[in-house]
Amino acid sequence: MPHLEIADLSASYEKGVDVLSGIDLQVERGEILSLIGPSGSGKSTLLRVIVGLLPPDSGRMVVDGTPVNFHDKRSLRDLRGRCAIVFQQYNLFQNMNVMRNVTIAPTKIKKRAAASVRAEAEALLEKVGLGDKHDAYPDELSGGQQQRVAIARALALKPEILLLDEVTSALDPELVNEVLDAVRVLAGEGMTMVVVSHEMGFVREVSTRVAMMDEGRIVETGTPEEIFDRPSAGRTRDFVAKILRG
């Protein structure tokens, strides 16, 4: 049974203008699936649907054998309890320091004991290399540091599925690697991940499978070798050629 299964799913921000159409996707447990494709192809939108921020217009999504009802609060809560997303713009809470950003959802929303949450948060921040920044506020941190806090915050939710939405796109080039290193550590731990990225070297290195998207559709899926070395769809060939050349 796939960990995440999406069938014939369409979604739009405005009625009649499909941003996603007829998406079919299966992600196995422990798999790292990367979504690649040109800007506006619907990659980030697909992540927003998966985490329940955008209800799809049609289609099915099944997580761990349970169908998701996007119009039922309890079903959505359950979905968001299993998934966590890291946004391109980090989206850290500006009014909270690093520690509070990481601990607020586990303590206030999941109602877990503060002491154990804090201990976990300390370990997570250590893991992303920010063990000395507990009391810093987001506007005192570099983009790379903020993004690593965002990753720690997502992990503090103990998600089964981690969604990464262009986590390095907003960063200065010299900060990209510190974030990718943090993700590499996770990739080695067997967590199911869906990753949107323009860092093709990184995608190739960590992904177990790659899906190429264009104009709201999945054009082709395959192993990184298949997609990058022997793409079958014309669209994929063009995109990969352009990216690798650039």
Partner: peptide, 24 residues
């Protein structure tokens, strides 16, 4: 994006206002 982050982490509307939006 502050609303998005809160919603994705299962904050309800009241919790989002209380912890995230009102303080800012």
């Amino acid at each position: 994006n502050q609303w998005d982050a809160a919603e994705a982490m299962n904050f309800g509307r009241v919790a989002t206002l209380r912890y995230v939006i009102m303080p800012q």
